[in-house]
Design a protein around this nucleic acid. Structure first.
Lengths: 201, 201
DNA sequence: AATTTCATGTAACCAGTTACATGATTCA
DNA sequence: TGAATCATGTAACTGGTTACATGAAATT
């Protein structure tokens, strides 16, 4: 019986990494412990069980390297089903709830989106993100007034910080949108590397 | 046997709310569903068990209102032990790991800190927060270079967004620090309300 | 009379953390 | 030869989500 695919942020991070190149559990841990991706957990007690869950649901496939030797390695490769699931997950429209509760996951989606959805998909994502943020900010600002009336000084400032962060993200989205529009509109949704896509640096 | 006090963000949010005034589980849910505090979960399946855990560990005490009537309400009040635990949790120094993994909790701490630690405590917290962020940003910027070399366009931008957010928070901290310093340095660590503390608005 | 709100809860499920365990291999 | 690294894993615990259940009271 195939289990249904896990949907945690960690699973997405792992699937995204494996989609770029086959990796072992240890490789994944290394990425998590040595890069800012570590925000999505780095404990073996999370990664190994997640890998097995993902294998059981058919998103990835483990191949034992050095079988029969003293130090076997499970190298996981993404399956066609996994690629389809990844694409589906990256293609989800940006919802208000994502902006409220799952900003980390949104940024993770954006980070892995380039190879899968290309520049066009990324642009669509950024425009949606901007819209959802701009719809959410007024709600927060109304609550700012409520907080002020409650005379909770710290509470008011804390809310202001939340608003600041969303504004910073909206500005970032604008900046990236213009950069994407400036550079030659080469589409690349297939995973192949464009020659010199980064030529504007 | 008393269980040891829960340490989740949700527990802190609940303890902070109850420290301001006695509340029922339903009251707490209402706060979570109608304000931006809802980020810290709003499901009854999280709140009611959390309340019972906190009661078992002695942080709060439930009193049944309308006992014997058809609609009893459990009103929870913070205990002395709970107040002590809250103060201790709010007084923790800001660690690098907090900045990396638990920004939400840090902001929650700041929001509840005013009544418990006063303006001095809040200032100390903000200065620590600023330092930890400024120590962390260079690490992120080094990884920005790595990402650029990997020619992962989206990955690079995603990291930039992370840095932007931290920078926005550092600027916010600076702003609040100056505001706290401008206004008359009335200390208020006792929970009593200063008359017109919000006079600078 | 029907719907919404008040108020509290449970059960099944999922998944993450901490801490520990194992044993080979490489390096100093 | 002892430490660090490679590589994989488990167990106990904690706690959150979804979905469901119950039933009174207030509202329309």
């Amino acid at each position: 019986m195939k289990r249904k695919p896990p949907t945690s942020t960690l699973s997405l991070a792992i699937l995204g990494l494996i989609s770029q190149e086959p990796l072992s559990g240890y490789d994944i841990r290394k990425v998590f412990t040595t890069t800012p991706m570590g925000q999505f957990s780095n404990s073996p007690g999370a990664i190994y069980p997640a890998l097995r869950r993902m294998e059981k649901s058919g998103l990835i496939m483990g191949n034992i390297e050095n079988r029969d030797t003293l130090r076997p390695r499970q190298i996981y490769t993404i399956t066609d089903e996994g690629r389809k699931a990844l694409k589906k997950r990256l293609s989800q429209p940006v919802a208000r709830d994502d902006v409220v509760w799952r900003m980390d996951e949104l940024m993770l989606r954006f980070a892995f989106m380039g190879d899968v959805l290309g520049k066009d998909g990324s642009l669509l994502f950024l425009r949606e993100l901007k819209s959802r943020i701009n719809e959410y900010i007024p709600y927060l600002q109304r609550h700012l007034e409520v907080q002020r009336e409650l005379r909770s000084v710290n509470g008011t400032y804390a809310l202001e910080q939340g608003i600041d962060k969303y504004k910073a993200t909206a500005r970032w989205a604008n900046r990236v949108i213009s950069k994407f529009q400036e550079s030659p509109a080469l589409e690349n949704p297939s995973g192949r590397k464009d020659i010199d896509e980064g030529g504007t640096r």
